[in-house]
Design a protein around this nucleic acid. Sequence first.
DNA 1: CGCCTACTTGATTTGCATCAACGCCGGTGG
DNA 2: CCACCGGCGTTGATGCAAATCAAGTAGGCG
Lengths: 251, 251
Amino acid sequence: MKTTKTSAARQYPCDKCPLQEFPHFQRHIKEEISFLTDFKTGELVADAGTTVLVEGANSAHLFTVLSGWGFRYKTLEDGRRQILNYVLPGDLIGLQGSVMREMQHSIEALSPMILCVFQRDKLANLFRNYPELAYDITWIASREEQMLDEILLSVGRRTALERAAYLFAFVFQRAKSVGMVRSNKLMVPLTQQHVADTLGLSIVHTNKTLKKLAARNALRWLDRGCEILEEDVLLDISGWQGLPGTLRPYI
Amino acid sequence: MKTTKTSAARQYPCDKCPLQEFPHFQRHIKEEISFLTDFKTGELVADAGTTVLVEGANSAHLFTVLSGWGFRYKTLEDGRRQILNYVLPGDLIGLQGSVMREMQHSIEALSPMILCVFQRDKLANLFRNYPELAYDITWIASREEQMLDEILLSVGRRTALERAAYLFAFVFQRAKSVGMVRSNKLMVPLTQQHVADTLGLSIVHTNKTLKKLAARNALRWLDRGCEILEEDVLLDISGWQGLPGTLRPYI
DNA sequence: CGCCTACTTGATTTGCATCAACGCCGGTGG
DNA sequence: CCACCGGCGTTGATGCAAATCAAGTAGGCG
């Protein structure tokens, strides 16, 4: 397990935050941007495979993902792993560690990631002086809960095929909202082991389930990664309604 | 499905909130109590079986549970149901409906419940003037996410027996923290169907799994309900560490 | 009393895990 | 250059855990 982190110079001042490009995000007003400029303490570049946040640690940081893919997971003592959710640009990570006393899950990068770093001890100041931003944080936490609810429904009650279809439809829609989908196709940098650990299945059965999706032309499996091709087929198989189209805040 | 709600007179002024009895909760300062007195618009008594909040609805309310048991759940179109979590005294429910545009899950009472009712449109005011309370709400949302993470790990990666043991240990510890456990025993008003829908198993297999737990004297199954007897055995079987003992806020 | 709901139990089927073997790369080092 | 990895995906065989099917019991209630 790589744990190296490389600090880089600050490339993205908050008034030129790459996230504001995407129409799905709410814009910040000027005062908020100047506060955030102070709240932000730097940027972090993580290589693929890096563990960005570790379960049990009491991290002093809070991050917003600026680019790249990652995933949140927990493990049992004997090594069984459950991937809880994926993290994409615009997602806030490490809130549990900031608000409660320690993180109960880990986060690992699936691709090179750029993270915007915030200092935890300035969070109280944010709540005191920028209630709209505080509200946004609560909004973001509620959204995470909503995603988890649907994922739990999926793992608990959908069949293996429905589950896999839901996962890829979900990832596809999320990626689309942050401009990662071009010409209606998307490359996701996953191994089948990641998929298995997300769906609660074994690798072998995951492999067979993925072949069924590939047979329906919903996706194509490539060397350590998959290309999502037909969102409609995935939505149809999973019976999932899709994500609401509302604007969302980011920090 | 019962949906009747019975409004009752206000029996619990905020300065005599029954929740402050429990040492697990953080106390409020006087100004907060006077604000909360205004924020609270009444109380709601729900009978067992009542649907307190419905998926898809845009409820104008937010609730804190004062007493009783309930559960949060989602269903698929064909009726498959997944119970996401249980709600106990001190839990805040309906936050998703308040903060985002609509609820994506339903909540049903397992026993008679008394709920403290808050007006959603006063929430912005809370964030503006009581940053500590706003922080508490974020804390509560983070805690819900943390519980969901563990539940998802359980459903995705634990065996049927481990899963069931975890569920009862979890419910036991939560109930203990709000004074519902007497002489180290606890009655939970559940049917085996509820347990099945929580664990992602069929009723029949749930029944057989519960018998194994009963054979180990971890619990006893009664008519529509179960009595949890041996927390240690449950913790042992599940391999679960237990809940952190930290103080927690409530609204 | 009879019906309904919840729980039990055994027989059977099936989905999924496990195990094992193999092919395909990309990387490394002689 | 080739030989030798190790990681990843694919496949088939086998066994087990859990779903499904099918009765049957016991208590609660009109």
